[in-house]
């Protein structure tokens, strides 16, 4: 197991390096001028532009820029953006908000998704099953920006149950965005749980559990469910990795001051240093979460060995 983790961590190095290069190249190739709009209505003076470019190494060839960036990155320095703030600071003030948002979405998808999937799986072909199957299909079919805007309008404006936007990133403000963010995963988790449970209920070991004289609750709740949840928990774990970074649309709709919003704004402002720094962070978080999920998978299903 230890060896496995070390091997996986070592494998991350080329992945992270490759990711930085690709992101850096894409930001470099992005059309637009980072100095645009910095000097009010007038174009900036050539002296200012030259000084700006020199400060951020923009006057050097691409590969030199990348090498200089990488050199600093290896020292743990994510750089300073065009507004004079360190990227590390920008990320640090926003990560807690994104983490809270992701946790709300995660709790939603785990609790509601598994519960709905179990109910549908046990009552296969009955009303509850059809309800879950159809409603998840609806959720999967509607784009998140539509769900988000609808939720904002109905629960925020009309009913007034939740704050319309999230200014400070408090838990209460993040509930509605969290539910919207988790809605797609809820649908997938419910369907995955249902399918696995239906399949496992037919398994021989469930028949054995009944032959042992166990109650239906124990045969289903312990024997069938435990097997069904192996892949569900794996999915939830993997989705947490993407929730940590994939919330750009949701964060925009609810004006959540998180990483997604920061990336979106940085791209708009041609703030390449911020974009690269934020995305590298997301890549690392994603890789680490995936590693944890893979280890968890081996714990949940003893047939999977990491040796």
């Amino acid at each position: 197991m230890g060896k496995y983790i070390v091997r996986r961590l070592l494998q991350m190095i080329p992945v992270v390096l490759g990711a930085t290069f690709l992101i850096f190249a894409m930001v470099f190739l992005l059309p637009g001028d980072p100095t645009a709009g910095r000097c009010g209505d007038r174009p900036c003076s050539p002296e200012y532009v030259a000084a700006f470019k020199a400060e951020y190494n923009l006057d050097k060839p691409f590969l030199v820029q990348y090498a200089l960036y990488l050199g600093k990155l290896l020292q743990g320095d994510l750089g300073t953006n065009y507004y004079g703030n360190t990227v590390a600071h920008e990320l640090a003030i926003r990560y807690p908000t994104t983490l809270k948002l992701a946790l709300i979405a995660l709790a939603f998808e785990a609790i509601v998704g598994i519960a709905a999937g179990v109910v549908a799986g046990i009552r296969k072909g009955k009303f509850a099953d059809n309800l879950v199957t159809i409603s998840t299909l609806v959720v999967i079919s509607i784009p998140v920006f539509v769900i988000g805007s609808l939720a904002q309008m109905i629960f925020g404006l009309k009913l007034g149950w939740f704050p319309v936007t999230s200014g400070d990133g408090t838990w209460a403000q993040l509930i509605l965005p969290g539910l919207v963010l988790g809605s797609l995963s809820v649908a997938y988790v419910a369907r995955l749980t249902r399918t696995n449970l239906v399949e496992n209920l037919r398994a021989d070991y469930v028949r054995t559990a009944k032959a042992k004289g166990l109650s239906a609750g124990r045969a289903v709740g312990v024997h069938a469910l435990r097997n069904s949840l192996v892949s569900v928990i794996t999915y939830i774990g993997a989705s947490f990795g993407s929730l940590m970074g994939g919330a750009i649309v949701t964060e925009r709709i609810f004006n959540v001051n998180g990483i997604g919003n920061f990336i979106w704004r940085s791209i708009n402002q041609r703030d390449g240093v911020s974009v690269v720094g934020a995305v590298i962070c997301l890549v690392i978080v994603y890789l680490v979460v995936n590693l944890i999920v893979d280890i968890l998978y081996g714990v949940l299903d003893p047939r999977i060995s990491h040796d």
Partner: peptide, 18 residues
């Protein structure tokens, strides 16, 4: 299980893998 018990043909699938 207590009064009448049963063993099955394929013990690999009849035992819970986890």
């Amino acid at each position: 299980g207590a009064g009448i018990a049963m063993i099955f043909q394929d013990a690999l699938s009849a035992l819970n893998p986890v």
